[in-house]
């Protein structure tokens, strides 16, 4: 898509809406923050799943790992983590504003870097797997991580760990975390748009289309896979750190490694919007989140059934997703060249 005044105006409108959301929708700030997080989930899943053809079911691992790394850094800078978790509620812990913001900043940085390192190690183990084996292999790592963290008493075990309390008022806190989610999602989008326009984008698309061929042509497939996974891990790690602080309390299975909710949602959102495209995951995340919140509000008790129905319709009737369907219907609008010299079916 070329940068025309119309496209620029579209970007500007989205940015403006994002910036003004706390003023326009002050009562929905938490949900809007989660929406930006969902967009980030879908965008980062699409790096591997859509652009490179490696369907990971374990990306949520980096979200949870980022959350825990950040918590350990934030607490560990000022307290003994083991004592902090074991005497939680028994002693008064107090973080000054300076300590809070220093911890939060360093925690987010450590989460991003730590998850990048994890992704390189994790990648070396799972990149030998292909297709469904890769999907199950990555899922196994995410599930195991949740269970393992539940047994690690030093970080609170199954009881979880409380993050330092925000030192100012709740409204300011809501706005801060909203903007953090918003900025992170926008930065992720811009970074991926830039990255896909380089040789890197061509190479991971080649791996998606035919990895064996790509290897035969001398492409460093392992290098590209490692970088793609690392980019996803970097942003997911940061998102985990921010989300953990936004929630205020980390529990291993439901909050840090929610494989059957967020872990699956990121796949579903991408498929819904159209995988392998830049805007598809964004669109999918918005539609999915709105439907999810609407069903949770108006169809309580049936919300999972409604979401399941949405997934079935998506998978059965239009696997290419909303953008993929639109590109098939109006290819010229998506910059796709159509061979008009050929008749239908004539090869």
């Amino acid at each position: 898509m070329s940068v025309t005044p119309k496209v620029l105006a579209g970007y500007g409108a989205i940015l403006l809406l994002g910036l003004l959301a706390p003023v326009l929708f002050p009562n929905f700030l938490f949900q809007l923050a989660v929406l930006w997080m969902m967009i980030l989930f879908a965008l980062t899943w699409d790096i591997m799943g859509g652009q490179m053809g490696y369907n990971s079911l374990g990306n949520i691992f980096f979200f949870g790992a980022g959350m825990y790394i950040s918590a350990i850094v934030q607490v560990g800078l000022y307290y003994n983590v083991g004592e902090y978790t074991s005497v939680y509620g028994g002693v008064q812990v107090d973080f000054t504003p300076h300590q809070y913001f220093t911890g939060l900043t360093l925690g987010i940085i450590a989460a991003a870097l730590g998850c990048t390192v994890f992704s390189v190690i994790f990648g070396r183990i799972v990149f030998g797997l292909r297709g469904p084996y890769f999907a199950i292999g990555t899922l196994g790592v995410a599930l195991a991580a949740g269970e393992l963290m539940g047994t690690w008493e030093w970080v609170g075990g199954g009881g979880g760990i409380a993050l330092p309390v925000y030192p100012y008022g709740p409204d300011q806190r809501a706005r801060l975390f909203y903007y953090m989610c918003f900025v992170l999602a926008v930065v992720t989008f811009v970074f991926l748009k830039w990255l896909y326009s380089k040789r890197f984008g061509h190479a991971i698309n080649a791996i998606r289309d035919d990895e064996e061929k790509a290897e035969a042509m001398g492409i460093h497939t392992l290098r590209y896979k490692t970088i793609a996974f690392a980019v996803a891990a970097f942003f997911l790690g940061m998102s985990g750190a921010i989300f953990g602080n936004m929630i205020g309390f980390i529990e291993p299975l439901e909050v840090a490694f929610p494989t059957i909710t967020f872990g699956i949602f990121m796949v579903v959102m991408t498929l819904l919007g159209g995988k392998g495209t830049l805007w598809g995951p964004v669109l999918g995340a918005v539609v999915f989140h709105v439907v999810k919140e609407a069903t949770w509000t108006y169809m309580l008790g049936w919300q999972w059934v409604a979401l399941g129905a949405l997934i079935i319709v998506n998978i059965v009737f239009f696997q290419q997703g909303i953008l993929g369907w639109a590109a098939e219907k109006w290819p010229e609008r998506f910059g796709i060249v159509v061979d008009k010299s050929r008749t239908a079916g004539g090869r």
């Binding site: 061509h202 698309n205 289309d209 035919d210 064996e212 790509a214 001398g218 460093h220």
Partner: peptide, 21 residues
């Protein structure tokens, strides 16, 4: 064996030598 979702020019560009990359 070609990269079937990419256009012809992109198929060619990704096939440039990767020796010094």
């Amino acid at each position: 064996r070609i990269y079937s979702k990419m256009n012809c020019v992109d198929n060619m560009l990704i096939s440039l030598p990767h020796r010094e990359e």
